[in-house]
Design a protein around this nucleic acid. Structure first.
Lengths: 226, 226
DNA sequence: GGAATAGTGTCTCTTAGACACTATGTA
DNA sequence: TACATAGTGTCTAAGAGACACTATTCC
């Protein structure tokens, strides 16, 4: 294998959050061609000495202004020969989750960044619709298989109802409250903080919980993926 | 994103088969530096106009002499800045399965290719031990979650005992024959071919089955991954 | 007959689903 | 009080695990 052929290597990131009881993803508006004015996943070129996941984190930080997202994992490589009209670009896609869903500032004042509900997306640049499809599948499957991933989507301390709302947002279907409660409490993942949330509208106040540190899934970064 | 930086893009493939009731993977002996003489996953550079999975298939065909493996899926991208001493090489790894486990011929007479049991591997070139670790995890998780993947590891027609042997090889632990049989027959995945295998040693001959075409998992190639 | 492999009957335990019920807050 | 949300008791059905049993072949 002689280094015969070179391609551009980029990263793109699908960052998911829960907003207004719905699953949202971060998109940025492109300021330059190609696809100027279209919405796209945050991303960019990998630097020569930069690990892939570091590039993903850097691009995310540049778009959000946040220093660190608590969970990020590789999604897949997208390398269709003509996915970028400028030439061959292989994109390593990542997916990430954050319990913070506050203001995001764009890369500069020209570029806008905002949260979009995953079930009402705009048209996307490049093959980002495919990437996002893939990422959405991934987060659903992961969360469905291990509810502990919810701890990265819901800020602690949380009530069991908040966990359920997040789960329903990710799965896109209602979840039986009784069964979820029974399951979560049986796992021993949660520490009960005597505190009760109250004052938020009518209804009985709920108990608040914090996840045990060892129950929080660690970010695989670029380690082995299941 | 101006095309500032270029890297070499390669593919590597972990092809799994069942051999002598054990899970094996295809490795090739490197003929040239770096890592001359060491064993490595089959792989090579992606051509300019070549889709990634096509490159993976091509490299596999060159190493095995087989035209087509029935299942191949993307594993992950490995892009550590110094994983290749010659410079920056991003490798897109694939994993594949085949029910054929016969002779493989090397790329040429100089390069050897052979099957290695996954639980007794030699030292590997580059970061291929990490890739293979990842691939082994992947096949285990996939098969454990959906036994239909076994149809790509066991040549049809097969007996339920053959399926069980393959499953045990992949999972690395014994599986209860009664429960597996009950489960498989309940799924309606199998068509009973009246044929009975016989003449192979002592014991009652077993019924033979063929998987229904719609029960055979299709190769995702580069479509969305779960 | 004995060894080896294929296949069955059936009990238990765990878990998910469903749903009616009670508890405690706000307006 | 009515209403909304939190939380409990409990029946049911499905599936996994275990294990003793029968069936059919080769030697």
């Amino acid at each position: 294998m002689g280094e015969k052929y070179y391609a551009t290597v980029a990263v793109d990131v699908a960052l998911f959050v829960i907003l207004h009881k719905r699953l949202h993803v971060l998109l940025v508006e492109r300021g330059h061609p190609p696809f100027a004015g279209a919405w796209a996943l945050p991303g960019g070129i990998v630097e020569p000495e930069e690990p892939l996941v570091a590039a993903a984190r850097r691009e995310l930080a540049e778009e959000t202004g946040w220093e660190r997202v608590p969970y990020i994992a590789q999604l897949a490589a997208f390398g269709d020969p003509h996915r970028d009209p400028r030439g061959r670009v292989i994109s390593i896609a990542y997916w990430a989750m954050s319990p913070r869903a506050g203001e995001v500032r764009g890369r500069d004042d020209a570029a806008r960044a905002r949260w979009w509900p995953v079930d009402a997306l705009p048209a996307l640049a490049f093959d980002h619709d495919r990437i996002l499809d893939c990422a959405y599948n991934r987060i659903r499957n992961h969360v469905a298989q291990d509810y502990r991933y919810l701890f990265h989507l819901v800020p602690a301390p949380f009530t069991l109802a908040e966990l359920r709302t997040a789960l329903e947002a990710v799965l896109g279907r209602p979840v039986n409250a009784r069964n979820l409660r029974r399951f979560l409490l049986a796992q021993g993942w949660l520490k009960h903080t005597g505190v009760r949330s109250s004052g938020r509208g009518p209804g009985r106040p709920a108990q608040e919980y914090v996840p045990l540190p060892e129950a929080i899934p660690t970010s695989p970064e670029d380690r082995c993926l299941p």
